[in-house]
Design a protein around this nucleic acid. Structure first.
Lengths: 192, 192
DNA sequence: GGAAGACTAGGACAACTGACCTAATGTGTC
DNA sequence: GACACATTAGGTCAGTTGTCCTAGTCTTCC
């Protein structure tokens, strides 16, 4: 007996992976069906269109991101520690990034070019990081420029992901990550 | 009478524009034919495949980039002036970037995901900027870290383009450009 | 065991893709 | 005018796409 919703979850999981590695448009129903091992016609019992699958994928990514960010807010960690956790994804996920780039950035870029209806939803993943980072900088005592600092970290890491992917250069990525951490250390910490 | 090679040039020009605005894969022969106002079958007299058109597009982009970089090497400009010219493309081309992102970054990202044979060629556009920027930093007296500085500028602007596109936020882009220029000013200038 | 509903397989559909072919037209040269 | 060649239009092709439909199977609950 199949657990309820298993097929649907498998479809979303496979689509999530394929959308990341091949791009949304370049991934066909046949591709997903091959991975999950179901017939093509089966999709339309769970989703009413391909865009529907995309929306489900974005939703799970939003969920996972939120959980990841929450997990980083452990006991005994400082805001700087947490920001470092974010910066270090570049190294943690390097084996994927070098081949497929940043999952968030590449999806948003593709949907922007397709002028896809769900691009706003996809951008919310960026917003999740932005708000979380902003909050960390606020805790460091940066009231006025917390958002600017958050955006700065966001764009910095985004650029490193893009260039690291293009040049397939781990040494450079490591170097930039160190630079980001060093920059972070120079920031003043104000206790209230 | 048609000037020689006009149609071919028109095809490349239209493809260049469409590849940028819609993405390579999402652009069909019909799309290009509509712009240039020729029949579909006509393509195969000038190009042997769609990939062939892509190669021609990349070649013209390489040419144009090279000319642009050469133009920036005017009389009486300092290396810092020239680097500033690069940074300010973000503002100059903002009306396009906000909708379609960076032409170089988005193409390289797409071709990486498609694992396309021409992705190496596309990356050469990045290399062009990289070498040029490296050269500017060398002229500023930075021998050992010239390449690292070049890559830093490259990734920084790349990230700003991606985030600026996602959030459609000119104020943020302006802010980051100012930050980059300020950072540039802090760099020491050593005369030999 | 029988009814109801969830789930699935597999085929069919029209639309579109890049690719290829051939016939026709234009252009320049001798 | 005759010839060679460059250029083009328009049709055809097989393959793939997302979508939809129907018939059938499995599961659950009474």
């Amino acid at each position: 007996m199949m657990a309820q919703g298993t097929t649907r979850r498998q479809i979303v999981e496979a689509a999530d992976d394929l959308f990341y590695r091949q791009g949304f448009e370049h991934t066909s129903f046949a591709d997903i069906a091959r991975v999950v091992d179901i017939s093509r016609g089966n999709f339309y019992h769970h989703f009413k269109s391909k865009d529907d699958i995309l929306d489900a994928v974005i939703k799970t990514r939003l969920d996972r991101t939120q959980h990841m960010l929450a997990d980083w807010e452990e006991e005994g960690t400082t805001p700087k520690d947490r920001i470092r956790s974010y910066i270090k994804i570049l190294l943690t996920n390097w084996s994927m990034i070098k081949d497929y780039g940043c999952p968030v950035g590449t999806l948003c870029t593709e949907l922007a070019k397709l002028n896809h209806a769900s691009k706003t939803e996809a951008n919310k993943i960026f917003t999740l990081f932005r708000v979380w980072l902003r909050n960390q900088f606020r805790q460091l005592g940066h009231k006025k420029d917390a958002d600017a600092l958050a955006m700065h970290v966001l764009s910095w890491s985004q650029g490193v992901a893009t260039l690291g992917n293009a040049f397939d250069d781990y040494k450079y990525v490591k170097q930039e990550v160190d630079k980001m951490c060093a920059w972070l250390d120079t920031l003043s910490v104000r206790t209230k």
